[in-house]
Design a protein around this nucleic acid. Structure first.
Lengths: 337, 337
DNA sequence: ATGAAAGCGCTAACAA
DNA sequence: TTGTTAGCGCTTTCAT
């Protein structure tokens, strides 16, 4: 079933059918009626593959995420898919599991399917891996790579602002010794989050103490290990801020195991605002990032990049907001157990 | 950059290049070497779109899920994507949000992209919506639709076995009055889950009491509402089994809000075994389903259906296993909080 | 306002 | 063993 068949059925040429379907060019209303009827009667489904082949247009956008076990990325995926489908566009999803060879493979998949743009989350690797996208002039938007170049924009999550809100909140509750459990070592966004925390502490006039900082892995186990290690410090913190919500879940789990009640003995603040942060037994105070806003920023940057392929891309900042829930409470400085 | 260019560069015809790339037909090793070198030097990326157009083969499989906010579906997605990529195949993801018009749209997307098979999770709608797939002879695998037909297989999760394990576990802990918070009303899998629970109660020699049963929505709010309602019963249950893990999270949240400690005053058992069930503050006893096993069963059924397009599809059953964690404990029958 | 025709890149059938 | 060629379905340019 192709346009030829529809054209025959309507007694016109395939060009006219194409014009009616795409709403371009001039077609007499009467003719258009006949074509629409034929479309209906034959149950015509267009074949976009032909257009992709001939014109390179695929109406497909790629999304590369590091980890589908992290609900934050799932929420982004959900928004991304939804936004695309609403515009009759298609999604090409790739998951790298933070393995460089998988990123390289993902980029290749993007090229093969002729995507019209790529959004890359968790860009923890060298630019080399995504170089082929630039060569093919495919608009790229990175999230939190904090770097733009010709053909590539960046959407940055404003950790500085987020952690400032978190620290301020804890300070108001009387906390002075605040710990931090960050992301994996050696990747850009971990350094950014760590730096933002330090800055937030200083901005609040609190002492930033390197001994109260641990690295994690953006997953539960890292949170568990991090808090275990922090609890061994001779002078424990009374509150902990984490690199993301999963890490905070790990922290709460670790504290539960150690018999330390949250928030009575220890306050915990996450980052991301995943839906489950409000759904677990003990709900989590966190910095909520609107994934919808983030995805919209990605598309805006993508459009801009596409329209300005010879210029450096946009830099958009996304600000989160503190959501206070059950995991934070008044500091008990005299705690020691 | 196409095969012609590679062929020119290697001094052969494009047919030979195709043969080398796909490893079919006879090519002299010396010639193949030259072609491989040209492929390398020109950084050739094949264009599968052309093959799809000419032969209809897309090497793409569709996955339709109802809800990307449910981690269970994300875990399935993860396995599905990973399995496809390992076989140089592509994923087409669609999310229906349990809206029939979106399912219809998803099916259309599948047709337009010429998928070679579709896995449909949460088939809560009439067959009519997926009819176009059968018409086009696209192999279909449903999960828990409990119905096969020509061109369509079904992978069934064995709720009967799962709930039998759960009930047995609770019975051994001394529970007699066990409540159930099921899925949304009026969809097939909810009826199956409900029936499986009833059967499990009877099989264990316990009284199935309709008054201790509520429906939910497979999400947190349904669990919260369900347990709130159950707590109003004059003779409360001492344990609750749910339709899925998210519902169980809602139950635990609702119990926490009501000041009812788990498992001291109430035991909770979920179903799915999502990763987070072991990560929340109070870990959840649940029936673990291996999403990997499930996805493999889907591909097996898909392959079978493809090879037997004129026969009724396979029926595969997936069994889960009970994972006992912190949310279940000895029954306190004299509770009356 | 409509139609005719080219051509995207690939693979397989056939020819040499 | 290698090459030639047809043709998938679409959109667009050009002609009428």
């Amino acid at each position: 079933m192709n346009m030829r068949a529809v054209a025959r059925h309507a007694g016109v040429s395939s060009a006219t059918v194409s014009r009616v379907i795409n709403g371009v060019g001039c077609v007499r209303e009467e003719t258009a009626q006949r074509v629409r009827q034929a479309l209906e009667e034959l149950n015509f489904v267009p074949n976009p593959v032909a257009t992709t082949l001939k014109y390179g247009r695929s109406r497909t956008y790629g999304l590369i995420v590091p980890d589908l076990m992290n609900p934050f990325f799932c929420e982004v995926l959900r928004e991304f898919e939804s936004a695309l489908v609403d515009n009759d566009q298609e999604l090409l999803l790739a998951c790298t599991e933070s393995i460089e060879s998988k990123l390289i493979g993902s980029v290749r998949r993007m090229l093969m399917r002729h995507v019209e743009g790529v959004v890359l989350l968790g860009s923890e690797f060298d630019t080399r891996a995504i170089e082929p996208l630039f060569k093919r002039r495919i608009p790229v938007v990175t999230v939190d790579r904090r770097r733009v170049q010709v053909g590539s924009s960046d959407v940055a999550i404003d950790f500085e602002s987020g952690y400032r809100q978190a620290v301020q909140h804890l300070k108001e509750l009387g906390h002075r010794r605040i710990g931090f459990i960050g992301g994996s070592n050696g990747i850009v966004t971990s350094q950014i989050r760590h730096g933002a925390f330090r800055q937030a502490m200083q901005a609040a006039g609190l002492t930033y103490d390197e001994r109260l900082v641990r690295s994690g892995d953006y997953r539960i186990p890292g949170g568990i290990a991090g808090i275990r290690s922090l609890l061994k410090e001779p002078r424990r913190p009374t509150a902990v801020i984490t690199a993301n919500d999963l890490t905070a879940f790990g922290v709460m789990r670790g504290l539960h195991t150690s018999g330390i009640r949250v928030p009575d003995k220890m306050s915990v603040v996450g980052f991301d605002g995943i839906a489950l942060s409000d759904a677990v037994n003990l709900s989590l105070t966190t910095i909520q990032i609107s994934t919808r806003e983030m995805v919209q920023a990605c598309f805006k940057a993508l459009d801009h990049t596409k329209a300005n392929l010879t210029k450096r891309g946009l830099e958009i900042s996304i600000r989160g907001s503190l959501v206070v829930r059950d995991s934070t409470g008044i500091a008990r400085t005299r705690q020691r157990a």
